[in-house]
Amino acid sequence: MHLAYPAVLAALLFCVGLYGVLARRNAILVLMSVELMLNAVNLNLVAFDVWLRDTLHSGQALTLFTIAIAAAEIGIGLAIVLMVYRNRGTSDIDKLRDTAETAGEDHDPDDATEAPDGPAQKAEAAA
């Protein structure tokens, strides 16, 4: 089999996942897109392992490790999303802007913590 088939498929899947991470608004949909990107990497690892005929089969071992780490990541990520939803009432990542810098704000970190509009922004972010 031509090596370009799995490599191109992995690249395209990775870019689909990249689009999803950048364009989605719900945090769980972002996690789904991250899963797509991880799977693209797994396909690359398996294809190159089969191509190189590695005696240690490092590609397949790394794929298993990546799958396990992805499972751990999705567990922790969902726990974080659920906690954010419990505290804020939303899982919309566009509204979680507590650490964002607004355009007109002074960028001095000492002033940023003492800024008078800080509580108002927090209330807006919590809404």
Partner: peptide, 19 residues
Amino acid sequence: PDADSGNRPVALAVAVAAG
């Protein structure tokens, strides 16, 4: 209706360029 955020064209451009 709000599944996609406002920076969707930018995301599409970045994904197409990377792809």
